[in-house]
């Protein structure tokens, strides 16, 4: 065990965990930020997507010891009032079915829009292909990203 200092959603935390503990499980089990989801544990489904200094990363394969001073943003910290343009567009398009993958979808899309505010349809597809939606809400996700990109 070692102590790690983390900045999550602009708040500072100290956690005592093994060096190999993935950020995902630190968030979920230690910090009680359960919006970030476990889906596969091998960076294949995207449910665990968070931002590290604004870049989308798969928290299930990122050991806590690999996080230095970068700021972690989770779905809980994406916007103060839950009104990020993507969260709003998700409501407009009523995207979720079961909803389990959606935090990861939104976080991945937010990183895309941050680096490419007006992505083409093909760019959206390429950027989002690492995120599985078992309910197959893919077309609604795409439409919601397109809506948010106009805001």
């Amino acid at each position: 065990m070692a102590t790690y200092k983390l900045i999550v959603n602009k708040k500072k935390y100290k956690v005592d965990v093994d060096a190999d503990t993935p950020v995902l499980w630190v968030l979920r089990d230690q910090l009680n930020l359960v919006g970030t989801k476990y889906g596969c544990g091998i960076a294949q489904c995207g449910a665990c997507t968070v931002h590290l200094d604004g870049k989308a990363v798969r928290s299930c394969v990122m050991p806590v010891s690999a996080v230095q001073k970068q700021e972690i943003t989770t779905i809980e910290g994406l916007s103060e009032k839950g009104n990020h343009p993507l969260q709003e567009a998700w409501k407009t398009h009523d995207v979720p079915q079961c909803g389990y993958c959606q935090a990861g979808q939104i976080m991945n899309a937010a990183a895309l829009l941050a680096s490419n505010p007006k992505p083409t349809e093909e760019e959206i597809e390429t950027a989002m292909q690492g995120n599985i939606c078992r309910c197959a809400t893919y077309n609604s996700i795409k439409a919601a990203i397109q809506t948010a990109s106009t805001k």
Partner: peptide, 9 residues
């Protein structure tokens, strides 16, 4: 549940 889902509740 849309707000809760999109905010990771």
């Amino acid at each position: 549940d849309i707000a809760a889902i999109t905010q990771g509740k």
